[in-house]
Design a protein around this nucleic acid. Structure first.
Lengths: 363, 363
DNA sequence: CGCCTGAGTTGGAACGTTCCAATTCCGAGG
DNA sequence: CCTCGGAATTGGAACGTTCCAACTCAGGCG
């Protein structure tokens, strides 16, 4: 198509490298197509009111100039960003990636897009990154785990619809949550090991965060219900945490480990290998979370429907964006034990021991 | 501090839920503090020209109203976003998270922040997500792997400073890249296995993407140099790819596997376990990438300095943002073999075989 | 006493969109 | 030939910020 070229604006100016110096605007496109900026705006939004000929000319001009709409300007005037902010506690833990899958799926299905951000387990960067999301005027916030105080969290929830994935937020008004039942989940692990004849079942803890404490409580209650002596050793939600935790646990004579999460369970496995202990013949290991990778690693775990958690969270959030004044809902997802090769019968010499016998450092 | 309250604006309006209906603006803060919006802007930016008393009043007003600056408005008028866009091919692969660590570190050190986005290995979403970054006017783009065509890539590079991490982009002008030498890296793996007495060394490929093909080429050349018959089986950069690839490879009598990446190597391990084969007694396995997790899994791998790659990439990018017209630089990072427990001497019955002997399906 | 200076403050234009109200254009109907 | 109506198009205000130029107001100095 031939455009009359008495319009002042030619092709976009380029620097020697070919990198554009000034980005073309609606105005430039309008000048090149010989119409007003309003019509260009209309045409690019696909309005049916634009005459076919004009539309064609505008699209051609935009293409020739390499026009790229400016989202910041658009969302400023529209007062909408159609964007959901997502904070991930730790990108190194594949569990969070799996939750994110579900979030993205639901967010996109609802016509929003996501802005992803991570504090990498550092509370200070976590704060600044979330602040950044709020300043970018995201319309909702998904927190895939976080380290905020209850006050900080509720302040945020007052500002923008928010949903927390991974733990319940009962006390705090105006925000939703999606989580599994960590107490019941830890009990599943203990029950499973008891069924296999274990009594010296130790728990490698995940530190003193909320989730870790819940799982620990579940372990302790289950042990008490089975009239077994509990042993909790310090660990963390990382491979290293699992490694050192497993070392002290087997040092104390444990034949089975309930590890705080999958990543730590992988670390525990490494510690056992380093000690020359076989899994599950000498020691059984059960993880927590249910990340996909564990299938390949043949690790027994307490599994949560991760992608579904993300999906449910995003759906709750979008509902809350549409109807801001809904009471908080806290969704509980089903937790189940997935038995794999890392858990087996207790070693014969350790089986059938007296239940509440105190722990000693025998091997 | 007592503020005179004849100003028209009171506290920000809230809906029954406590969720704010209209976000306070500079104007609201100005009204409440009894000054002009210009002075509020100045004060919030920490300008020394603002009188202490005014500053205090303004800060108090902002705090009381819960004022939150609007980044979209700010970046619109400033014509700067101070934001780097980062695209990650696949969040499920921890390798990319480790590269991202380096990127974030360098980006923050230089006073920028990041906007993270993932296509989750789907080319279509990848495109829309990158488009989104461009429309948000990021000042630079880091692509931690991607599936764009060369044309698409160079079009983007013409629009915004861009750096690709993970593979070289020699042919394409105006963008930088950071990568390891995949051909040499694969050779390291083969050499290592040959030293251990292996001759039936198979390669589980990573598909037909650029990197996979490079690694495959490195394997093939190294095998030829050792006068060994190569065997390449189809795989993918995923656990499943490694699983099926390993199955066919050992079916063909391989005693050692050079697997296309770490994730696939984990899958290969699972396949061997399922077949009752011991590692490394029956079969040795070498991965590629060097993700941290492999340390716990005791897997030999060809390691790349992942975080450093990210750091170097971000530094190159920021240099290019400052000085747009610099010639492309392609940084090569050092690749080295990290020997762990998954690679060992070739089984005695397979050792010292005739080198170029054709492969058969013996076990 | 008027002028100058500089500290402190302010109005208003600009950024690139969207969208409303107003305008032009053109053919049909009276 | 004039009027009307609908389709197509347009100007301009608005979004919330930044920043420049201009202004006010003391106080010091000649």
């Amino acid at each position: 198509m031939v455009t009359t070229s008495e319009t002042p604006t030619g092709l976009s100016p380029t620097s020697p490298s070919g990198l554009q110096t000034r980005r073309p605007t609606l105005h430039d496109v309008a000048a090149r197509a010989g119409v007003s900026k309003s019509l260009v705006s209309l045409a690019l939004q696909g309005s049916p009111k634009v005459a076919p000929a004009s539309r064609e000319a505008i699209l051609a001009a935009a293409d020739e100039l390499g026009y790229r709409p400016n989202r910041t300007a658009s969302s400023l005037v529209r007062q909408r960003t159609h964007t959901i902010g997502v904070h991930i506690l730790d990108l190194h833990n594949p569990v969070f990636a799996e939750i994110l899958d579900g979030v993205q799926e639901a967010v996109r299905r609802n016509g929003y897009s996501t802005l992803l951000v991570t504090g990498n387990a550092d509370p200070a960067t976590e704060r600044t990154e979330i602040t950044r999301l709020l300043e970018s005027r995201v319309e909702g916030l998904v927190l895939i785990a976080h380290r905020l105080s209850d006050e900080a969290l509720s302040a945020i929830a007052r500002e923008v619809p928010t949903v927390v994935v991974t733990w319940r937020t009962d006390g705090i008004a105006g925000l939703d949550s999606v989580a599994g039942d960590d107490v019941a989940g830890a009990r599943l692990a203990v029950d499973h090991l008891v069924t296999l004849g274990h009594s010296r079942i130790a728990h490698v803890s995940g530190g003193d965060n909320r989730i870790a404490l819940q799982r620990r409580a579940g372990y302790e209650r289950a042990m008490a219900d089975h009239a077994l002596a509990p042993l909790v050793v310090d660990g963390a939600f990382t491979e290293q945490g699992g490694y050192v935790g497993a070392e002290t646990a087997v040092g104390a004579g444990a034949t089975a480990l309930v590890v705080a999460n999958d990543l730590a369970a992988i670390g525990a496995l490494a510690a056992l290998r380093a000690r020359g202990l076989r899994v599950p013949d000498d020691v059984s290991v059960v993880g927590y979370d249910g990340m996909r990778l564990l299938d390949s690693l043949d690790l027994t775990t307490v599994a949560q429907p991760l992608a579904e958690m993300g999906r449910v969270a995003a759906d709750l959030l979008i509902k809350r964006i549409d109807v801001p004044d809904t009471p908080s809902t806290h969704r509980r997802v089903e937790t189940r034990l997935v038995a794999r090769g890392s858990s087996g019968m207790a070693p014969t010499h350790a089986r059938g021991r007296q239940a509440a016998e105190p722990w000693s450092s025998s091997t």
